[in-house]
Amino acid sequence: MAEKPTLREDQQLLDLEPLGQIGSEASASGGQLTRRTFLSGLGAAGLVASAGPLSAAAAPMGQAEGAAGAHTVLTVNGEQHDLGMLDTRVTLLDALRERLYLTGTKKGCDHGQCGACTVHVDGRRVNSCLTLAVMVSGKEITTIEGLGVPGRLHPMQAAFVEHDGYQCGYCTSGQIMSAVALLKEPVGPSDHDVKEGMAGNICRCGAYPNIVAAFQQVRNHSTMNG
């Protein structure tokens, strides 16, 4: 059981800051940064991703002082995280982002109105912003980080890349989590059916045509393969 949040495996693998110019130097003691943590860098084909300066950060965990808590264990992407007596107010979204540093799941509205925070709970897509973390203690949670990583993309992730199913990328995690869930839901074959199945994920950049194309490709491909 993971007691403290650590860097995700893919983050560690991808810590390839070019030039070795700046390392990840966040000091866990005293709360001050010893120096700038890293330069912005982006390598081709996802070779260079951010490690992020979080490392073994001692973030607020467990029961917040003065607030009611409940013992919460989140099983995320197959890994158990004991969050101790977690403040009951913490949503699944904020638990993932602010406690486990799984920031692939995004906050877009915090009220179930945009779908950016979509994750799977026991295989079903839900809005993690309206889900209290304590209520999914013990359930199987899958986030975007659990689907695939650069270099080992899930077919839906690969299809989004191929079809340019995004622009800014911010709603993309939610779109992909929705699309992957939709593969297993009753949905008709037409583009119209797919659009309705994706209605709960707003893309302000309007990449919808490409998102639909990505979904159809994955579905048709997996159908062909039986």
Partner: peptide, 9 residues
């Protein structure tokens, strides 16, 4: 009503 995610909840 709502969205597929909300209907799942």
């Amino acid at each position: 009503g709502a969205s597929p995610q909300l209907r799942n909840m």
